[in-house]
């Protein structure tokens, strides 16, 4: 399926969602969540060639930082999707907590980077 088809299907599903919300409000949220997850999956599938290209481009020249970056981007994507779903449901407090969780997860992931940076600073000061 191409990009225009995906956009057209998204508009159709949103219209269906509005219809379902007006008839049976309680089914609107699960439908919205399914639609969000499906679209995120399609976006990831569309980005896979890009990610593979980036990986092949930089793999010979990097020491593991690229996989760290990819994990950080993945965590960011999942966090933003979850936070949006929470906000759509009217749960702003939960949305902000999900964002906080995502940030902590990314910071924990970047600990090796911070350690490497501290070591480099020490090396420069020893010059």
């Amino acid at each position: 399926m191409d990009f225009v088809t995906y956009c057209a299907l998204t508009i159709v599903f949103v219209l269906l969602l509005l219809l379902v919300r007006s008839v049976k409000g309680e089914f609107a949220l699960p439908l919205s969540v399914c639609l969000s997850v499906m679209l995120a999956g399609v976006a990831l599938a569309a980005a896979t060639p890009l990610i593979e290209y980036i990986n092949n481009l930089a793999k010979p020249y990097t020491g593991g930082y690229l996989s760290l970056m990819l994990k950080a981007v993945g965590i960011s994507l999942v966090t933003s999707t979850s936070a949006d779903i929470c906000r759509d449901s009217g749960e702003n407090a939960i949305a902000s907590k999900v964002e906080l969780l995502g940030k902590c997860e990314i910071l924990a992931l970047s600990l090796p980077l911070i350690t490497a940076m501290a070591e480099l600073i020490a090396k420069v000061l020893e010059l």
Binding site: L57, A58, T62, L66, A72, V73, S76
Partner: peptide
């Protein structure tokens, strides 16, 4: 290497700006 990290960084920044 720099280009690949910049691409991923730009993607991440777009996601986080959206949030």
């Amino acid at each position: 290497f720099f280009l690949s990290v910049l691409l991923l960084g730009a993607l991440a920044e777009k996601f986080e700006r959206a949030v």
